[in-house]
């Protein structure tokens, strides 16, 4: 799959598996999992520097921004204003203009606030950021976000951290037909078959965190996810056989003994 690179806003991505950096035991485990996943994109949150304990290690000491594309996110923001502030601060940190825009609507479901997401996306696109928005699996929302300048969209598979996998593959398919930008499934996948399924549907990439960090063996799961994405993508490109109700023999009928 040498010629199968994902390109968003002129940025070339080697991997179609993108990973988060939260919930790991420590930075060493984070680093190992990221390496095992084969990714070149890691998402990070923007948080206050610990001014009391400055001896605390920095994530970027473990994850080299020269080796990985850093995708700052606005995780934890519940208003457009907070998301805009956070995204602008992330851009000012000077590593990237990419941002994964998240505006959360409710802390039980962690579903996005679509209205606030649109409002924030509009401002951030105007400010020159490359806005990749986390959104519900809604084709109309996808169209609105693309129309205002998002170069890709990130519909959820299922609630964040739920591990349920793609709940509505039909909506994801309609999103793919509605907008002609890369679709990155974000949040809710649980295991390697979930990411394979997303890729088989024709999604361009999958972003996940908990499914790896929360696995009993995160390093092994990271590797499993790598193969899940590769297998799913290859299957999509190969073109699967149609589903049929009845059997079709795969051995020749001629030359059977006793015929």
């Amino acid at each position: 799959m040498i010629d199968d690179k994902l390109v968003i806003a002129g940025i070339e991505f080697q991997s179609r598996l993108w990973v988060g950096t939260g919930k790991y035991k420590d930075f060493a485990e984070t680093k190992k999992a990221i390496e095992a996943s084969g990714t070149d994109v890691v998402t990070v949150s923007v948080r206050r520097v610990n001014i009391i304990d400055k001896s605390k290690e920095n994530l970027l000491d473990y994850i080299d921004p020269k080796k990985y594309k850093i995708l700052p996110n606005t995780a934890g923001c519940y208003t457009a204003k907070d998301a805009i502030r956070t995204a602008m601060l992330a851009a000012e940190a000077g590593i990237t203009k990419l941002v994964k825009l998240e505006v959360i609507g409710d802390d039980k479901t962690l579903f996005p606030d679509n209205e606030a997401t649109l409002e924030a996306a509009k401002v951030l696109v105007k400010e020159g950021l490359i806005v990749l928005p986390y959104m519900s699996d809604d084709p109309i929302m996808a169209k609105k976000l693309v129309d205002l300048g998002c170069p890709a969209v990130m519909p959820l598979a299922a609630p964040i951290g739920s591990g349920l996998g793609i709940r509505n593959p039909y909506n994801i398919r309609i999103i793919m037909e509605t907008v002609k930008v890369p679709i990155i499934v974000d949040a809710g996948v649980g295991t390697a078959s979930d990411v394979a399924f997303a890729m088989e549907l024709g999604c361009d990439a999958v972003l996940l965190n908990t499914a790896i960090a929360g696995a009993k063996d995160p390093i092994a799961m990271a590797e499993a996810m790598k193969y899940g994405v590769l297998g799913g993508r290859l299957a999509y490109k190969a073109g699967r056989i149609p589903r049929k109700l009845y059997a079709t023999a795969s051995s020749p009928i001629e030359g059977m003994i006793g015929s």
Binding site: R47, R48, L59, N73, A75, I104, D186
Partner: peptide, 12 residues
């Protein structure tokens, strides 16, 4: 003043 940096995190 707010002084921020990148920390571990995925979604929320």
């Amino acid at each position: 003043l707010e002084v921020v940096s990148f920390m571990g995190g995925g979604t929320v």
